[in-house]
């Protein structure tokens, strides 16, 4: 379970995330939807204590991230597509992360197999394609077998087969009772992957609903999304003039 309450982040006079509140419940995939630059990544980075909020807070399993005793065993994050050193092997990258949270080293091979990277596990990860890099990032997120997962644009750069694989993986992780938060700017992908939707624009909450709830507002889900985010884009234009 992730709880976000009044989360706010400013960069100078720009408000990137604006008093944002929502929950990510266990047992469901929650789609985190917004146009590029709407504050999705900043929100996820604040949940993981990578960026500090100017106001508000986020909790994971009732605790601020900084207080987690074994962070990787409670939450797994995929924030950047290439969050590993290009000169290091996938195996060494995962082994180092596992060591930090006293995760047994055999788990490294387990997650490598789960994401289908065991054949290239000892190769330098800098040579990985974007799709392989995403798989390594997902392996890192799953290392601690966490109850909470946060994935920022995990389908970026994946081929259709890879996209289908991630969709199935996330759905089965949610079915096991995990809380899964997946960001995307692609409404069509979210419609297939998510149970619930948190839509933001200009860092503000625009909708916190189910996929069915959002698509009921307009002839199509895409239409409903564009209406929502279009309003916030107009808001931006008005503010700038």
């Amino acid at each position: 379970m992730i709880e976000v309450r009044g989360l706010t982040k400013r960069y100078g006079s720009t408000v990137a995330v604006d008093r944002l509140s929502f929950d990510v419940p266990p047992g469901a995939v929650t789609g985190f939807l917004g146009l590029n630059g709407s504050g999705k990544s900043t929100t996820m980075r604040m949940i993981l204590s990578l960026d500090s909020p100017d106001a508000g807070h986020a909790r994971i399993g009732g605790q601020p991230y900084l207080r987690l005793r074994w962070p990787l065993r409670e939450a797994g994050g995929l924030l950047e597509p290439r969050a590993f050193h290009p000169g290091r092997s996938a195996r060494a990258h995962l082994a180092a992360l596992a060591a930090s949270n006293a995760i047994i080293q055999s788990r490294v091979d387990e997650v490598l197999e789960l994401v289908g990277l065991q054949a290239v596990a000892r190769k330098r990860a800098g040579k990985f394609s974007l799709g392989m890099a995403q798989r390594l990032g997902i392996a890192a997120a799953l290392l601690g077998d966490p109850a909470v997962l946060l994935l920022d644009e995990p389908v970026n750069g994946l081929d259709p087969e890879g996209i289908r694989w991630i969709r199935g993986l996330l759905r089965s992780l949610a079915a096991e009772g995990r809380a899964v938060l997946v960001s995307s700017h692609l409404i069509s992908e979210m419609a297939l992957m998510a149970d619930r939707l948190v839509v933001i624009g200009q860092g503000r909450l625009l909708a916190d609903t189910t996929v069915a709830g959002l698509s009921g507002r307009a002839p199509s889900l895409e239409e409903a999304f564009l209406q929502l985010t279009g309003d916030s884009a107009q808001f931006r234009a008005r503010n700038m003039s």
Partner: peptide, 18 residues
């Protein structure tokens, strides 16, 4: 700096926020 350049730093600090 190698961690900042590659983005590994976010994986490191997510694993160990202290």
């Amino acid at each position: 700096t190698g961690e900042y350049a590659s983005g590994t730093i976010s994986a490191t600090f997510a694993a160990a926020p202290r």
